[in-house]
Every structure is written in structure tokens, then in C-alpha cells.
Amino acid sequence: MGRRRLSHALKAAREAAGQTRGDVAAAMDWSLSKVIRIEAGTVGISTIDARALAALYGITAPDRVEELLSLARNSRLRTWWSTLRDRVNPSYYAYIGLEDESVEVLYFAPTTLPTLLQTRDYAARSTPPLPTGDRNTRIDVRLKRQEEILNKTRPPKIIAIIDEAVLHRIAQAHKQAPEQLSHLVSLSTAPHITIQVLPFSAGPPPVVAPFTILQFPDPADEDVMYVENAVSDEVIDRPEEVRPYLDMFRELRAKSLDPDESLAWIKQIVDDPG
């Protein structure tokens, strides 16, 4: 998130100064690719470079300079996922950092359970071999994310819409059903976790791919959507692309059972998986 804010701030400042990325590269004696990576948020910068860019863009107000310096410091902080940079793909690495900064996580799960709600056994069964990154690393990171996010002093609010078919599929796999469904029931009692079941009676959902939307405490930070499938994943932060999915999420939630009804339905499926 620190890099995301910094990249947005630097890009806006450059455009306000009427300079191109090529102009900046020449003035700073950098490669053009470095400027692109900084503005894409894939790398952080030092406070020395941040101060030099502020001067280049004509930013002299002390509070604005300090804001850029603070963002630069934050962009280089070490985190628990810092060691994963070379072990997971860039989209997933970016998502982990954004998820850690979020205040609300909205899941739509039409095929598998949301990753933060999975047991280790279910995570192992539901993680496909990926073209990039080690599968076992992916599973371990998923469980580490659960530990870090769910055990925060102030964890994000999680709203998960789970298609009824996902629950029946779990219940039919008898070995994992008791543990995973009991885990869901236990999580549903947490004040910051809301689980709602989209019943068959709601009809087919308008989308069959799972997606996650992250929301942040600062209104200036746009929502981010994460889409993952068997061959790739992507972090999308373009408002015009995220907004329709947010509207879709709200419609799906309105069609879902309320939390108490959903809990009762999960227990019923456990008792009668057929």
C-alpha cells in the first residue's frame, strides 16, 4: 500500500509538472524502465530519491515534501512477506501487501471456499499446480495470511458469499467435511466475519469466477479487485473495472441467505450432505 500511494503521488506530481517519464529518466540519470517500475509501484525508492523528485517536480511546500518522504520510507519497510518476492508471482505478492492494509475484504466464492477461511487440508486439495511459484509455498503462504490477518488486533471486516454448491461439494468429500465445515461454523461466530450462502434458489450467478475486492481506510485509495484461476492471477485497481464487480457483489449479497440462515444451512448440509 505504501508503494501504491507513493506511485500514485509521484505520477500525479510528474503530470502536474508537465514532464514525461523520459524527461524524468534523463534528469535523474535513470533508465526509463526504472521510472516505469516506480510509477507502477513494483519498487520502492529511497528518501534521497524522493526528495530529488520533489525538487524536479517543483514541490517545495514542506508538508508535501514530508508526505513524499514518509511514503518513500513506508515503501521500503520489511514485512513478513518480504522474503516471498522471489517465491511467488508478482500479482500474488502485491495482493498480500494490499490485503494486509485493507479494512474490508469482500469475497465471492462460486467454486471454492475463500482462502482466508480454509483449513490446511482443504487448502492442499484446492490449490492447483501453477505455472509460476511453488505449490507448497502457495499453501504455506495462504495459511500464514490467515494467521496474520485473522489474528490482528483490528482485523479487516470479512464478508464472504459462498455458493451452496461449494458446501455440498465439501460435504460429499466425507474425510474433509467435518473439519472444514466445522471451521466455517466456528469462524462465523467472529464479530468481524460474515458468511452468507447463495442458495440454488437464487438462480445462476452472473459470474462463475471467484473474485475478491479489498477496501481501504483512506477514501482516496480506490478499491482493488483480485482475480485468481488455475493458470494466472491479477490485481486490478482500475475503478471502471472494479466498480461493476462491486455492484455485482451487492446484488449477490441481497440474494443470499442472511448470516443466521446461512449458519443453519451449513449445519443442515453437514447432517444431510445429500
Rank of each mutant, 00 (worst) to 15 (best):
T42A: 14
I266E: 09
D233W: 07
S188D: 10
A16Q: 00
R253E: 04
I161R: 03
P206M: 03
K175L: 13
P273E: 04
S232V: 11
L257R: 14
R21E: 11
A61K: 15
T47R: 11
D86T: 11
Q215Y: 01
K144E: 15
P114M: 09
Y95T: 04
P244G: 05
A209Q: 15
L184Y: 01
L187Y: 04
F249S: 01
S102L: 07
R14D: 00
Q180K: 09
Y226H: 12
P217I: 07
E222T: 03
N74H: 12
S201A: 15
I149M: 14
R5W: 06
L77K: 12
K34W: 10
P210D: 08
S75G: 10
R85T: 00
R3E: 00
I161V: 03
D258R: 14
I266Q: 14
V43P: 07
L56N: 08
E222C: 01
A230M: 10
I139A: 12
L98W: 10
P90T: 07
Y122W: 07
A173T: 04
A94N: 12
L69K: 11
D271I: 08
K152E: 03
V227F: 09
T212G: 07
V231C: 11
W30P: 02
A50H: 13
H174I: 00
Y122T: 00
G133I: 14
A109D: 01
R135C: 12
F216I: 09
E147Q: 10
R64G: 00
A124M: 15
P273I: 06
L257K: 15
I236W: 05
V43K: 11
W80E: 00
L98P: 10
S91L: 01
L184R: 05
R120H: 11
D271H: 12
P155T: 01
E66V: 07
A220T: 07
V227K: 08
R250V: 01
D86C: 09
S82M: 02
A173I: 05
S256M: 08
A55F: 07
A55Y: 01
R243Q: 06
D258N: 13
S75I: 05
Y107T: 00
Y57G: 10
A40Y: 01
A123Y: 08
L263D: 09
F216W: 06
E67G: 04
L32S: 06
A173Y: 06
S91V: 02
Y92H: 03
A230L: 13
L167N: 09
Y226F: 12
Q180S: 06
V224W: 10
I96D: 04
E251H: 04
T112Y: 11
H192G: 06
T194R: 05
G133A: 14
D247M: 12
E179D: 09
V35S: 05
